[in-house]
Design a protein around this nucleic acid. Structure first.
Lengths: 192, 192
DNA sequence: ATACGTTTTTGCCATATGGCAACTATTTAA
DNA sequence: TTAAATAGTTGCCATATGGCAAAAACGTAT
């Protein structure tokens, strides 16, 4: 096992034993995506746990009026997944699409389950990742209620500056819950 | 073990073996709360996993302007918990308060961990509960962006009619992300 | 380099919701 | 039962954001 392998950043010797790493790491398969390709499509059951080594992706749903609403952005080190479809084995409402070319590492559901139930550190890590996503979502919920669009944008700018640079205005707008017109005006206002 | 015990509705023989139930059920402790008492207070670390047998609770946070914003409602069969504080062992931003008198069943963190790591069915159930909360939150996020306040209210009315009847207008309003004035007007409009 | 399609910007006006202030209704405590 | 506190309602106007249409800017393929 090469020690400069990307996954060694995700599964560090501080948390996993040498023996566990030898079981875990080889189970991942490297997969590349070209810009605009889908990692997951609406109606399918999420069957992969994807770690991103490079590139950007976004997830979106189509609302009842047919509007495309961005639900999240993903970049290096992130897990690009619909947790509920993956764990509950339900068809997903989400699409996950590559915004740039990407390199990812995948685990399928059965392999994930095997590691989850057999390795306590893997299980704890998975739980922490899921809870981390949950926490972010809860904070966003409060921000949606308490903050104006401009503040939500500034917050995103601070938290994920690399995202802003790689994602089109219209996708950022739906993520923030506003129209592209409003976001364009907010940017203009900030610039001055 | 009495078979009409409330927890037998939560831990059913279909999913858990007789032997597992004998380990799990006795570990729960029955606790009652009076109206307005707190199950969890801002700044503390969530140390309990609460199943509600009867009564209602709500969780809320204080935003930067000091406004009290309702984040969720809980009733019979629900788990009234801040998952992130519980699992990540961080001080919480949330308050969970009894809206009526309540009867709950508690497990502390260490006991939860013990059961989580030793009983696969318990672990799967916990994961499903957490993912279920996550799923609900994600759908709410889309609804916030795609639907008007009136539709969000009608949706809540359909999903949790018992909540509406037991919770004050102002708390429902902040949960929906609108002011009490707006919700009052929406109700008036619906009535006609 | 040119031309096409897509994305972003901007003027204009529409609409949903916010929020004060005053009033009314309901709940709680004495 | 009555008074006090709390919760809900409503008139009025303010404000943030929506959304069309047209123009401008940008990216991409030939």
């Amino acid at each position: 096992m090469q020690t400069d392998h990307f996954l060694n950043n995700i599964f560090s010797p501080a948390t996993f034993s040498e023996k566990e790493l030898e079981v875990i790491i080889p189970k991942f398969k490297k997969v590349s995506f070209s810009k605009n390709e889908y990692l997951l499509k609406e109606g399918k059951i999420e069957n992969h746990y994807w770690f991103i080594e490079s590139g950007f992706a976004r997830s979106f749903v189509n609302d009842t009026k047919g509007n495309d609403i961005t639900t999240d952005f993903y970049s290096q080190g992130d897990i690009a997944i619909d947790w509920s479809s993956f764990f509950l084995r339900n068809p997903t409402r989400e699409n996950i699409q590559a915004i740039t070319n990407m390199v990812c590492w995948q685990l399928d559901f059965d392999t994930f389950q095997e590691l989850f139930h057999s390795i306590e550190a893997f299980r704890e890590q998975g739980r922490r990742k899921l809870v981390g996503s949950y926490f972010a979502l809860k904070n966003q919920r409060v921000s949606f209620i308490a903050d104006e669009a401009k503040d939500r944008y500034l917050q995103l700018l601070k938290e994920k500056p690399h995202v802003i640079k790689n994602v089109s205005l219209q996708h950022i707008a739906t993520y923030l819950g506003i129209t592209k017109y409003s976001l364009s005006r907010i940017r203009k206002e900030i610039a001055s």
